[in-house]
Amino acid sequence: MERYVDVAPGVRLWAEDIAPHADATEDRTASAEPLLLVMGANASGVAWPDPLIARLAERHRVIRYDHRDTGRSTWAFDEHPYAISDLGGDAIAVLDAFGVERAHVVGMSMGGVLVQLLLLDHPDRLLSATVLCTTALGSGLAAGDPADAAPVLPDPDPALLALWQEMDRPRDRDAEIAWRVEHWRLLNGSGTPFDAEEFRALEERVVAHAGRHDNPAAHARAARTGLDRGAELAEVEVPTLVIEAPEDPINPPPHSGHLSRAIGGGRLVRVPGMGHALNSTVIEPVAAAILTQTAAAGTAAAPS
């Protein structure tokens, strides 16, 4: 079921509620716990691969949505500017719109940063959290002031930094998709095979969903205020899994290790060879890690 969610004056988000897999039993469908997917910067909800969603929907009611300035959500950063931290509140608004009191939440990249904000500000709304390809609040790209980041962790690959300088340049549709495929090639890294056609098909779907191919890079321009909260992570009690991608060119090790240690009760799982991309070779281990996490959290929360 698709719907639009108003999150601020003049700003609405596209969201989709995906019922549990058709093969699930009636009892499992009725009791399926919600799982919210929070995507990374400048990426819409349909960037989550369909095979991953299908695996998660074997046990969960899956909810995904388009951030502001992506997909079918409002594109109006210049008229309605915001900080990255504001996007955390958008996730809660999506849960409210679908009548979800508590959910498992999965965040990738910037989405993982937003999930950390949810852990701090809305722990009562989370059954569990899983973050991947991300960094801790107050560090790396999640530092409000990069000069104050602590500890000092590796920067993104210089080749990526150079490509990001071209992110918002005007291109026709074919050139834009070609640029995005090259972006995915760098994000994927060399630890697993890169299939250009797989990511071309993904971006064709993303563009068709949005109805436009331009990229205003709004999240790269959004303020980073409110992110220097890494010290608060030690108080987190919600079961939290950190998935480490050892070949991640944006947040390489030891970013994930630092985050898992910073979070109270955090747990670390490594997916060998994974970069900053959900290609077909890593979907199964990522799905298995998420489902193990949600099952354990559900068991822990169940009355004895």
Rank of each mutant, 00 (worst) to 15 (best):
Y4P: 15
Y4H: 15
G10V: 09
W14P: 09
E16H: 14
I18F: 15
I18P: 14
A19L: 15
P20C: 14
H21T: 08
D23W: 13
E26I: 15
A32W: 05
L36E: 07
V38D: 03
N42R: 00
G45T: 05
V46R: 00
W48M: 12
D50E: 14
D50S: 12
E58P: 09
V62Y: 04
I63D: 04
R64F: 08
R64E: 08
E79Y: 08
D90P: 00
A91T: 09
I92Y: 08
D96P: 06
D96G: 10
F98K: 12
G99Y: 10
V100I: 13
H104W: 00
G107F: 02
G107D: 01
V113W: 01
L118R: 10
L118I: 13
L120I: 05
R125D: 00
R125L: 01
R125P: 00
S128N: 01
A136D: 09
P146N: 02
A147D: 10
A149K: 00
L160P: 06
Q165H: 08
P170W: 14
D172W: 15
A175I: 11
W179E: 03
R180Y: 11
R180S: 07
R185D: 06
R185T: 05
T192G: 05
F199P: 01
F199G: 02
L202C: 12
E203T: 13
E203K: 11
R205N: 08
A208M: 11
A210V: 06
N215D: 14
A220N: 06
A223R: 07
A223Y: 08
A223W: 07
L227W: 03
A231Y: 15
L233K: 05
V236W: 06
E237A: 10
I243R: 01
E244N: 14
P246Y: 04
D248H: 03
P249H: 01
I250G: 00
P254W: 04
S256C: 08
H258K: 10
L259F: 09
G264P: 04
G265E: 03
G266H: 03
R267M: 04
R270M: 04
A277W: 10
T281I: 10
V286K: 02
I290S: 00
I290N: 00
L291V: 05
Q293R: 06
A297E: 09
A297L: 07
G298V: 02
G298R: 01
T299I: 13
A300D: 04
A300Q: 13
